Amino acid sequence: MALLRLMQLGKRFGGLQAVNDVGFSLRQGVIKAVIGPNGAGKTTLFNLISGALAPTSGEIRFQGKTIQGLKPYRIAALGIARTFQNIKMFAGMTALENVMVGRHVQSGAGFVASMLRTPRSRREEVAIREKALELLDFLGIADCADIEATSLSFGQQRAVELARALALEPKLLLLDEPAAGLNIYETAEVGRLIARIRDLGVTILLVEHDMSLVMDISEEIVVLSFGEKIAEGLPAEIQNNPEVIKVYLGE
């Protein structure tokens, strides 16, 4: 059974059909990329999956259950985490504290217990801190734990963002242009980190414009153009698909 399945998904904004009749499935443990020119509907598709937008038509199933229309926090609790094209760090907080914010979603002590600093809440806070440090170490930036996150390099901030998403213990990770703003060396490092995350058992769906990164780490690719799916297949098949070549290079 597919981990994620989109069926005849559509989203209309007034007279604009941003996503039209898009369908594909994502198997567990796979890195799948969604590519296409600007305005193809890629980010809208991510907003639909993550619950930021409700579809106009179609269905989204995660682990066999329909999820379209659920609030983003409900979808996150089911095991879908997301990063964004524009890195979002909490100002005035260290890298470690930024990751701990993501882990607090897993907290069971509750708001009142946390405010009163009960023994349970203190134990949970220690566990959250330890897990956040473990994730920073896994992504190779443990030495940045106590540095204010906004002062880190773009590449380091991207790693912090990935750690924060992993703190949710997701089954599916949506990566929206993870290489945006990165230089060639940082992009290569992010590619290695994404592969390591997949090796943990996390399924990954990414939107990306850097074709070298896409072809290097993706096992399957979906191509969108003007909101419609025009191709799907292995990287080699997509590279040689006449319709894809026409979209990217013109007639």
Rank of each mutant, 00 (worst) to 15 (best):
A167P: 02
L162R: 14
R27G: 12
D21Q: 15
E124M: 01
R122I: 05
E124N: 06
A195S: 13
R158E: 04
G79M: 09
R192G: 01
A179Y: 02
A167G: 15
E59Q: 12
F90M: 05
R82N: 11
L174V: 10
E161H: 07
L224P: 13
I128W: 07
E189H: 13
K88G: 04
L96M: 12
A54W: 00
E125K: 15
Q68P: 08
A142F: 07
D176T: 06
S57M: 07
L162P: 12
Q85N: 03
M89Y: 09
E130P: 00
G140N: 02
L173G: 12
D137W: 00
S151P: 02
Q85A: 03
A180I: 00
A236S: 15
M215T: 03
V214R: 04
A77C: 01
R27I: 00
R164L: 05
A95N: 08
K42F: 11
S212E: 15
K246W: 01
A195P: 00
L3Y: 08
V30D: 14
S25V: 08
E134T: 06
A77K: 15
G140R: 04
E97H: 04
L213T: 13
I60P: 03
D216A: 01
I221Q: 06
E243V: 02
V190F: 10
N20P: 06
E232C: 08
L70T: 01
G110T: 08
S151L: 13
A91T: 09
L249A: 11
N240R: 06
M100W: 12
R129D: 10
V244A: 03
E97I: 06
E97T: 08
A167Q: 11
Q157W: 13
V223Y: 09
L174Y: 15
M7I: 06
T94G: 12
H104C: 05
R74L: 05
F138R: 07
F138I: 00
L172W: 06
D199P: 02
A231D: 00
I238E: 01
L213V: 15
N241I: 14
G15A: 09
T118H: 04
L173Y: 15
E220D: 15
L135W: 03
L139M: 05
K65D: 13
E228I: 01
G110I: 11
I238Y: 02
R103W: 09
G227Y: 06
G51F: 00
I217Y: 04
E161D: 15
M100S: 13
L206W: 10
L249N: 12
R158P: 11
I184M: 04
L53K: 08
G79A: 10
G201I: 12
E228W: 00
A33Y: 04
I204N: 04
M215S: 00
L6A: 03
S218D: 08
V101Q: 02
Q156I: 05
L175S: 06
I31N: 13
N241P: 07
A81H: 09
S50H: 02
N38T: 07
D21V: 13
A52D: 05
A40H: 01
G191T: 05
D210L: 03
G36R: 10
L249W: 15
V247C: 05
H209Y: 08
P119K: 06
L200W: 11
L173N: 13
V214T: 02
L48W: 10
K71G: 07
G36F: 02
G58N: 05
D216R: 04
L16M: 13
